[in-house]
Simulated assay, not measured.
Amino acid sequence: MVPDDSHVTSNSHGAGDASRPWEQLASDYEQARSREDSLDRLVEWPAQRELLGDVNGLSVLDAGCGNGAKVAELVRDGAAASVGVDISGNFVDAPPPGTQLIQGDLSDLAAVPGLGGRRFDRIMFLQSFGYAKDPVAALRTARMMLADNGFIVLTRTQPIRYAIERAEQNGTSLGEEYFSTDSFSYRHNGWNDQVTLTKRPYTMSDLLNVFSAAGLWIEAAVEPQLSEDARRRYPHKQAVLNKYLGILLFKLRPLPG
């Protein structure tokens, strides 16, 4: 639920630990996500929910869960004892019984208190995977925490979006910026313009190679869009998707053996 591929630095305090400014930004992000016209509400969560399938009686781990609202909703929908982990620790009040929300780093899930030795039927990285210090290691750990026949649902921003933003910022071309390895920074006026987000660019091949190196294969990939009704109701959001394409969803399973 946190924005992926980002380090965040406070404009007033300079660069530092990426997790600390996220504690500033987390509540602003959740407020933005809860708006009626939020793309998370209109596009991302419905698609993520569909890819997860029936969770009744299944255990779920939400790695980088933000305030924990999504894993709490899954428990209300019948999921068994489930866990949300987020470094901010800014969690919803009174989650339903069977929901455990833990402050911890998704970069090393095995070291998070309460997760040692546990197995999950579904593990989610919803716009959070870019925070992993070592993406391959984080996915390998998650793979080992899967129960039999379990899978990972991972979402990431379409990498072309970042290339478009950089091309506009730098006066360059889409191709130049898509293959650039230089990080870029901007202020997110929709959340909190006192915080700067610094993005680590990646290509589609980068993403696919991380999955492979972690011992995972893609069972399904989805590029969700607004419904026809939502397009009519929120044309400004359709304009965003027309320009920046949206997000990518992956259903990942362990490679045999």
Results as ranks from 00 to 15, higher is better:
residue 3 P to A: 01
residue 3 P to H: 01
residue 7 H to M: 13
residue 8 V to P: 00
residue 12 S to P: 01
residue 16 G to N: 08
residue 17 D to W: 11
residue 18 A to S: 15
residue 19 S to P: 00
residue 19 S to M: 04
residue 26 A to C: 11
residue 27 S to D: 14
residue 40 D to S: 08
residue 41 R to D: 00
residue 45 W to H: 08
residue 46 P to C: 07
residue 49 R to C: 12
residue 53 G to Q: 09
residue 54 D to E: 13
residue 60 V to T: 06
residue 62 D to R: 07
residue 63 A to E: 02
residue 67 N to Q: 10
residue 68 G to Q: 11
residue 73 E to P: 02
residue 73 E to C: 12
residue 77 D to N: 12
residue 78 G to T: 12
residue 81 A to R: 14
residue 87 I to G: 02
residue 88 S to Q: 01
residue 98 G to H: 10
residue 99 T to I: 06
residue 101 L to S: 08
residue 103 Q to V: 03
residue 103 Q to K: 12
residue 105 D to R: 05
residue 106 L to E: 04
residue 108 D to M: 02
residue 109 L to D: 10
residue 109 L to S: 09
residue 112 V to L: 05
residue 112 V to C: 02
residue 114 G to C: 06
residue 115 L to G: 13
residue 118 R to G: 11
residue 120 F to S: 09
residue 122 R to W: 10
residue 125 F to C: 09
residue 129 F to V: 10
residue 129 F to M: 06
residue 129 F to E: 05
residue 134 D to K: 09
residue 136 V to S: 01
residue 137 A to L: 08
residue 138 A to C: 09
residue 138 A to F: 11
residue 140 R to E: 09
residue 143 R to S: 08
residue 144 M to R: 14
residue 149 N to L: 10
residue 149 N to C: 13
residue 150 G to D: 09
residue 157 T to E: 02
residue 163 A to G: 10
residue 165 E to H: 14
residue 165 E to F: 10
residue 168 E to W: 01
residue 168 E to G: 00
residue 169 Q to F: 02
residue 171 G to H: 12
residue 172 T to W: 03
residue 172 T to D: 03
residue 172 T to V: 08
residue 174 L to H: 07
residue 178 Y to N: 13
residue 184 F to G: 11
residue 188 H to K: 02
residue 197 L to G: 14
residue 198 T to C: 14
residue 198 T to Q: 11
residue 198 T to L: 07
residue 200 R to C: 04
residue 200 R to S: 10
residue 201 P to Q: 13
residue 201 P to G: 13
residue 207 L to V: 03
residue 214 A to M: 03
residue 214 A to Q: 01
residue 216 L to N: 06
residue 218 I to R: 01
residue 219 E to W: 08
residue 221 A to E: 04
residue 227 S to K: 11
residue 230 A to W: 00
residue 231 R to P: 07
residue 235 P to L: 12
residue 238 Q to T: 03
residue 238 Q to V: 01
residue 238 Q to H: 12
residue 239 A to Q: 13
residue 240 V to R: 10
residue 240 V to P: 00
residue 243 K to Q: 14
residue 245 L to E: 05
residue 246 G to R: 04
residue 247 I to Q: 04
residue 251 K to G: 01
residue 251 K to V: 01
